[in-house]
Computed example of a mutant assay.
Amino acid sequence: MKLLGMDAPIVLIWLIVGIVFGIASGKVAQKKGYSYSAFCALGFFLGVIGLIVALVMPDKAVKSVDIADGLLKYKRLLDEGVISQSEFDAKKKELMGEDS
């Protein structure tokens, strides 16, 4: 039996491979704070390339935690009088990635 010009078992294998890479890409991306469905589609259509893209994407959650920890550290220094308000504001802009 032919499907899409190929034997049915070959089409079934490609479909299963696409689903496996789609789910794997989606789950990796979701753990990093990205859209599950977008990376699931990427993995389904691009296979291992979609999974590699999901694996090399930076972790959004870690960046948020790093920013919060940095702000708390500099706020404590400000409260203790170690740094001035202008120094705190400069560090806050730096951590938040704002342009001067």
Rank of each mutant, 00 (worst) to 15 (best):
S64Y: 08
S64R: 11
V65Q: 09
V65C: 03
D66N: 12
I67P: 06
A68Q: 11
D69I: 04
G70D: 08
L71I: 12
L71P: 02
L71W: 00
L71G: 00
K73R: 10
Y74C: 00
K75Q: 12
R76S: 12
R76N: 14
R76I: 11
R76T: 12
L77R: 10
L78R: 13
L78K: 13
D79Q: 10
E80C: 09
E80T: 08
G81E: 07
G81Y: 07
V82R: 15
V82S: 15
V82A: 15
V82H: 15
I83E: 13
S84V: 06
S84Q: 08
S84Y: 07
S84M: 09
S84L: 09
Q85T: 11
Q85S: 11
Q85M: 10
S86D: 12
S86M: 06
E87P: 03
A90L: 11
A90D: 08
A90G: 06
A90N: 06
A90Y: 02
K91L: 06
K91S: 05
K91G: 04
K92T: 11
K93G: 15
K93T: 14
L95D: 06
L95S: 00
L95Y: 10
M96H: 01
M96E: 14
M96T: 07
G97N: 05
G97I: 04
G97T: 05
